[in-house]
Design a protein around this nucleic acid. Structure first.
Lengths: 230, 230
DNA sequence: AATCTGCGGGCTGGATCCAATAACACGGCG
DNA sequence: CGCCGTGTTATTGGATCCAGCCCGCAGATT
């Protein structure tokens, strides 16, 4: 079970280098909660697990560090980054700001194809919701948001927003199970897409802001609660 | 002249790892224009120049790639990233958005010490301006802006803004020599600091927005002109 | 009994070595 | 004369090897 986890060398189109593939896999495992905040990642162990040398692991670490998912100290190795409530708050404010702009710019540019793509993702998202498949829901959630922003044609901004989303996503996943915002968010997604179809920028952006703020508030509350009993 | 460039092993407090130091040095050289867009960076050559093996260079590349300063392709190496005018435009709009928010949050939090620090940097900046020391002016320019945003206590946002600034800075430097916006920007810096001292958020933010927009427009125009005759 | 110290294991950081790939040039062929 | 195929070379990607640093443990000294 442990060897080759998630790398699926079989259908590898070799579209990406090994360090990138490793980074993807490790990122997913961090988001899944398999590696918890504070836990240290040992190069040797991971190298053996993925059946490669330590070098690709090291390069993958650099990537994850740049994304803020791990922190490394010289001669002390890498640990999964923790996220204080304060930081989560800031990241959610960033999301409100940046994603509002993206959506506002995107809506006038949306083609029917774009809308259909979003619809497709939303269907998958609803399916994952019904099946309570948290991990799949988490990644599709971002995929849905992303699909709405792509028509804005703001690749740099989108990349930054993606980074922010990935950074907070693992906490979102942990918290989804016990949160009623989960259900609300699910409904809001559908409404959001409808506003986009209607080209109602005002309503769509307002809903998006509320959507992100609710998620942020809920997450911050959860983080603060956790930090108290810890 | 070429060996050990900028690493200054002498006073090294070893506060940072070798790859980080390399990344810093390479970043500076890219910003200086020593490595031009499209130019390819060869691991072996740099390794020899810095008198180390290729491995630290490789790790430094990962960092620079994450910052968007270079792009790497598998088995094809690293080249300095180009920046189409369109991309510059987007990054400047990002700056306007994010830096406005930062300044607005920062001003109410500024202490006298903060203001003195900014004043100090501004003095250095003015000195660099008089001496027409472009590289120093470039790095101090960001340092000044940064000093104004620090009191906002938004470390994540600040890190992102720093990344954006570094990405556009090398074009700014190239263009400063021939641009009259250079002089205007210099004066605006002083005015900006005075507005901050007066706690005049409205005026400060408005000026900052104009300041960044002017710089952006000027840069975009210059990039478009360049792309035409190329 | 507690703390300081010296030693050893485990891990990271860096160097070197080998394999794989892509650009390039030369030569053969149409 | 031009185009395509092949071989060579330069350069990257990955593996292995070696040195150096943390940290924990044990023993000694106060």
């Amino acid at each position: 079970m442990k060897s080759g986890m998630g790398l699926t060398k079989s259908h590898s189109l070799k579209r990406q280098s090994l360090p990138e593939a490793l980074a993807d896999s490790l990122r997913e495992r961090i988001l899944n909660g398999e590696f918890k905040p504070g836990e240290s990642l040992v190069q040797e162990a991971l190298a053996e697990e993925y059946e490669c040398s330590r070098m690709p692991v090291r390069e993958a670490f650099r990537q994850l560090e740049a994304a803020g998912l791990i922190v490394t100290k010289v001669h002390k190795g890498a640990v999964v980054a923790a996220m204080p409530a304060e930081q989560a708050q800031e990241l959610y404010e960033l999301r409100v700001n940046l994603e509002s702009v993206l959506l506002e710019l995107a809506i006038p540019n949306m083609t029917d194809v774009d809308l259909d793509t979003s619809e497709q993702v939303l269907r998958e998202l609803e399916k994952a919701y019904e099946q309570r498949d948290i991990n799949r829901w988490g990644s599709l959630n971002w995929e849905f948001h992303r699909s709405l922003y792509v028509p804005a044609n703001r690749t740099q901004t989108l990349a930054i927003v993606q980074g922010v989303n990935l950074q907070v996503e693992r906490y979102v996943r942990l918290q989804l199970l016990i949160s009623e915002t989960f259900e609300a968010a699910q409904k809001e997604h559908r409404a959001l897409l409808e506003y986009c179809r209607a080209r109602n920028v005002e309503a769509a952006v307002a809903l998006l802001k509320q959507h992100i703020r609710d998620a942020g508030d809920s997450l911050v509350a959860s983080l603060e609660a956790r930090s108290v009993d810890a």
